[in-house]
Design a protein around this nucleic acid. Structure first.
Lengths: 243, 243
DNA sequence: CTAAAATAGTGTTTAATGTACACTATTTTA
DNA sequence: TAAAATAGTGTACATTAAACACTATTTTAG
C-alpha cells in the first residue's frame, strides 16, 4: 500500500529518510559461442577498481524498465531488445555510502563489437565470460550475477530466450550450442533436432552456411504469431532450480 | 551500479528527487477450502474507500524482506512464514501523490480467525476469495494481485508452496483440493495419490479424521532433509504461464 | 439391521514423451 | 580417393502422464 497518509508536513520531513533507488542491468551476450556478461570498472570509492554491473539512479519521470533501457543504451548503445526484471536487492549495508535499493534487470543482446562505450564514471567496460568472472566484483554484485545466471538458465527451458542471443539466421546446432552454454551440460543432437522442430518455432530458409564439413541449413525464428509474446519451448523438464 | 559518484553537495540536493519505496504484501490463506487474499480498506484520498494490498514505507534500518514481514505482522499478527519477493512496480503515475516504487511480496499463511487487526490508517481489513475480488481496488493493485495469483499458480507446480497453507496434519485429498483451488482445475484422484506419494515429501501419521464417509488418514509434511529449503514437487509439466 | 450414499484409497491400461545411440549424408582436407 | 569433419535422421526402449475402473470403510436413511 502506498498509503501512510502523511500530512504535508510529515511528508516533507520524511524525505530525508528515503533510500536511493537504482536500476542495475545484467547484460548477457554470446561472443564466439560463449556466454558473456558486461561489467564496468569503478573509478572511485567505494570499490575503486572493482568491477560492477552497469546501472544508475532512476529519473523521476521514467518507469523502472525505461530506466533500465536507458542505462543499457548508455553503456552499450543497444536498444529494443529483450529485458526482464530480475529481483530487487535492498539489504541495509550493501552500499557503504547510503541506503540503496537496486532493481536488477536482465538484458540479452546480440553481440556487436562496435557498441561498447566507456562512460565518465568508469575506467573501463568489458565483456567477461560467465565461466571466468573476475574476482574483483563490487558491492553485492556477485550475488546479483549468480542470481541472474540462475534465472537465465531456468527460463531458458520454458521460453524462447535463447533466440535473443542469436543473429537473424542460425543453424539448429548453433542454437543447441547456446543451450549447452547456458545450461552447462551436453544435449543429445538427435533429440534436440526433433524437439526444436516439433515446437514449430523455426522457419526454414534456403540459406546454407559452409564450413569444414557438410554445410548447414540456416533457420529463422518465427515471429508471426503474437509478435512480442514469448513462446514456450521447454527443452527439459527435470530441473529443480527454477528462479 | 550504485555508483554515480555524487559529491556531497549534489548528493544532498538529489534527495529531493527521490522516489518513495514501499513494500506491499499479497497475503494468501485458505479459508474453508477456498483461496483468499487480504485487503485493507483505505480511509483517505486517494482511493478513499477502495481496497488495497497491505503495505507501507520501508525503514532505513531494515531489509526489504524484514519490512515485508513487519508489515505482515502489523496487519495480521502472523510471523515466521513463507514469503517471497514478487515483483517491483514502479511506473510513474501509479500513485497520484508522488513517485512511489513498491516492492511486492507474496506471503502464505495458515488461516487463523484471531489474527486480523485494523490499523489506524484503514477502515477495515478483510479476506476476499480470489474468485470474487471486489471491484474497488486502489492504485495498480489489481494488476499486482493478478500477477501474484499467476505466480502462485506457476510456482505451485514445482515447489512445495501448497504445504504452507495447510495445518500440521492434513489428508492427501485436502492437499489435492488446494492444488485444484489454485490451479483452478480438477485433478485426477488416483494420479494425485500416486504422484504425491512417490515424491516422498509426506510422512504418514497414525491420526485419522472422521467425517461422513470413510475416515481419512492424516499426513505431515516432512521437514527433515534440509529443513528450510523448498523441495520440488512438480504436479504437472505442461503449463506455459510461468511467472 | 441393512442397503444406499458418501467418502477414501488402489490398480491397470494405454498414450505420450524422454533418452540413448546407431545410422546415413555431404562436405573439406590430407 | 580415403579419412575426417560436420550435419542430420531413425529407431528402440524406458519413463511418465492420463484416464478410469475398481475396492474399502465409514455414516446415514429407511
Amino acid at each position: 500500500m502506498e498509503d501512510h497518509d502523511e500530512t504535508a508536513t510529515t511528508y516533507d520531513a520524511s524525505r530525508y529518510d528515503r533510500p536511493s533507488v537504482t536500476v542495475d542491468v545484467v547484460i548477457f551476450t554470446l561472443i564466439e559461442r560463449e556466454l558473456h556478461v558486461l561489467l564496468v570498472q569503478r573509478k572511485r570509492w567505494p570499490y575503486e577498481g572493482f568491477w560492477a554491473i552497469p546501472g544508475g539512479f532512476i529519473n523521476m519521470d521514467e518507469s523502472l524498465e525505461q530506466a533500465a533501457r536507458r542505462e543499457l543504451e548508455e553503456e552499450t548503445g543497444v536498444r529494443d531488445l529483450y529485458m526482464e526484471q530480475l529481483f530487487t536487492f535492498g539489504d541495509v549495508g550493501r552500499d557503504p555510502r547510503t541506503r540503496v535499493i537496486s532493481v536488477a534487470y536482465i538484458a540479452l543482446v546480440r553481440f556487436d563489437a562496435q557498441h561498447l562505450r566507456v562512460s565518465d564514471e568508469s575506467h573501463d567496460v568489458r565483456w567477461f565470460p560467465v565461466s571466468a568472472l573476475t574476482r574483483d566484483i563490487a558491492f553485492d554484485h556477485e550475488q546479483i550475477l549468480a542470481y541472474a545466471i540462475a534465472r537465465l538458465r531456468s527460463k531458458l527451458e520454458y521460453t524462447t530466450l535463447a533466440f535473443q542471443l542469436l543473429p537473424e539466421l542460425f543453424s539448429i546446432l548453433e542454437l543447441k550450442h547456446i543451450y549447452e552454454q547456458i545450461l552447462d551440460e551436453k544435449l543429445d543432437k538427435g533429440n534436440f533436432y526433433r524437439k526444436i522442430k516439433e515446437a514449430g518455432l523455426l522457419e526454414e530458409t534456403t540459406h546454407m552456411r559452409e564450413g569444414r564439413g557438410r554445410p548447414t541449413r540456416l533457420w529463422r525464428f518465427k515471429r508471426d504469431r503474437a509478435s512480442d509474446k514469448q513462446f514456450v519451448f521447454r527443452w527439459r523438464e527435470d530441473r529443480s532450480d527454477r528462479a
